[in-house]
Amino acid sequence: MSEWWSYRLSDFLLFSPRTYWRLFELHNEALWPLPLVTLALGLAALALALLRARHHGKLIAFVLAILWAFVGWSFLWQRYATINWAAVYIAPVFALEALLLALLAGARDGLTVDQPGFRRMAAMALIALGLGYPLLAPLFGRPWQGAEVFGTAPDPTAIATLGFALLAGGGRAMLLCLVPLLWCAASGVTLWAMDDAQAWVLFASAALSIAALTAVIWTAFHRPIRTAGLRQKGPV
């Protein structure tokens, strides 16, 4: 394809908003009552994190790994790909995130809660948003049947994962946030092309995550990055 500059964002949109949102209605209908189960798993993960229960880091990473694999297969591969051929190429990326989470679940700390202050607040806000995502359907004038649910739909799963990764902080957060951030950008751009204001929810989630990640990096060094000549002195 040539003359890329002549293309508008909407030129890459292959489907209508109605078709897109009905995907979630069909998805929920096909999986019901599984969305309730995955949402309950998300709430359980949050409870584990808040209580700092024993092995919570491993358990949270394990649950997220399962859900990323499931969303990649059931939504992207089996459903979204029917209207967007690009989804076929994105599904393996979800599998990669699932693999990273699974490896982390097998590691010593998993996603152990480790972040204070702003980063913790940002992380909790992202988790709350991800788990409360079904509320957006009626807020944006769509039926409950088409609600996007953590663990079965990609957007809330990605946003909540950003939160859990940021709670853990460190290099793990950096690594685990990459795929969810890319998804938030891709999905946000899709909604933007559809003239849907919900795009801002994804952009805001990505922006908050990047701000929190920046804070993680900032405090990981003794001196500010811009004045320290990027010389690492080890974690705080």
């Binding site: 292959l14 489907f15 109605r18 078709t19 009905r22 995907l23 459903r79 029917t82 209207i83």
Partner: peptide
């Protein structure tokens, strides 16, 4: 273009 890309949605 766009209008008939409705996937497996039986209603659409």
């Amino acid at each position: 273009w766009i209008t008939f890309n409705v996937g497996n949605d039986p209603v659409l």
